[in-house]
Design a protein around this nucleic acid. Structure first.
Lengths: 220, 220
DNA sequence: TCTCAACATGACCATCTGGTCATACCAAAA
DNA sequence: TTTTGGTATGACCAGATGGTCATGTTGAGA
């Protein structure tokens, strides 16, 4: 999507604002989009919450979609930073330990930034969000790169059963991790594990159980 | 939630309509809610699509939420019917075969009723849908009962590795199946498997690969 | 002190929403 | 023919929305 001159100017105005004001606007926008979803998000509420005038908003951003894009980019950069940290911090560990630490880091991130996760869910399942395809593709690419890197290293070190189809392993990991985080964040999405806002200790036990199942399989 | 007299009267008016008209309204409502989500759904579009007057809608249903409830119940009953059929039709098969047939039946249902699945996704991830908790709980209960029944039978027949935690198995199955169906239905939700609108034969191969992973595990 | 451009402001606009209601219609009964 | 009860209708309502714009305010350079 091409950005017009006027939009660039507006964005640069925003970036030159006093940091605390920028933060107020960012926080209010994230809260509004994460809680309400794109369409239900109200710019009137947003400006009220941020303590700025409505006109000002349109001096910072070209329109509603522009605000939304900015919030998404902001959120994605936070996730990316955290993932990189975990990956580099566990380079020498075994595959299943790395998976365990990754999932626990995910839970930690989700608890520190519940609204970022909520925003992600909204984008994933509201078909009428603008730029949905583009945003989802970005998230999936990051996830695939992350798991792919772990799996390749595990293969190189001989930790995986020979002949397992890599694509299927990536899919299984993505599915399980995503759903685990969802179950921690969303009540009544969890069948049986009692993860919603569960204490740290329960989370750790469940993570280990699940990874054990992945490792050893279900069959007798 | 209690239903008032007036609401009952309205509903019975709807049920006495000529079947083709009922169907037109139901189709239009399902399409509107599934495509737009609860809030973005427009009753003006709905009545235009169904070919009835706006006032008529309020002779059939008490309000927007009432229409939504009716659509949900309708959709759930369809799913339930299909699940029962599969369960009873595979009673004597092995655990992993039953899982395979269940997942393929899910894909079949999703392709026959894409809007029912879309409605389900909307309910799951839009926090501002009325009755969300109630509806999600109903869906989860059905899923848990279904998988639970399969797993208990598998245990009784000694098909599962002794000591596997049943709750974790249910969670893993629920996560994998749900995500698999989502990947078939939603583009750019699939990391690496190429499931979106894939031909029957690809689906079958992927299902077998994944169930094989579950069965035998990942570790060397 | 005056000027001027950047920014702040909130009343205002067209448009859409869910929901209402006076009116019209129509079959069956009287 | 008249009455009656259920149903169909769409103009209409208050309220909310995203977006605009004329008017203020401010602060640095002359």
């Amino acid at each position: 999507m091409v950005m017009l001159r006027a939009e660039e100017a507006a964005m640069s105005t925003f970036r030159q604002l006093p940091p605390d004001k920028q933060e107020r606007v960012l926080d209010a926008a994230l809260a509004e989009f994460a809680d309400q979803g794109y369409h239900a998000a109200s710019l009137n509420r947003l400006v009220a919450q941020a303590g700025i005038a409505k006109g000002s908003l349109y001096q910072y951003f070209p329109n509603k979609e522009g605000i939304f894009r900015h919030i998404f980019q902001f959120a994605l950069s936070r996730v990316q930073r955290r993932l990189t940290t975990v990956k580099e911090g566990t380079l020498e560990e075994g595959f299943f330990v790395r998976l365990e630490k990754s999932l626990l880091a995910g839970v930690g991130f989700l608890r520190e930034h519940p609204r970022i996760f909520s925003l992600y869910l909204k984008i994933q399942f509201d078909q009428n969000v603008p730029c949905r395809e583009e945003f989802l593709a970005a998230v999936r690419r990051h996830a695939a790169e992350y798991f792919g890197s772990l799996v390749r290293r595990a293969k190189a070190r001989g930790e995986l059963r020979p002949g397992v189809p890599e694509a299927a392993v990536l899919f299984l990991l993505d599915a399980l991790f995503d759903r685990f985080l969802q179950a921690v964040a969303v009540p009544s999405l969890d069948v049986t594990l009692g993860l919603y806002q569960a204490p740290e200790e329960v989370i750790r036990r469940r993570v280990r159980e699940l990874l054990q199942l992945l490792k050893e399989g279900l069959a007798a």
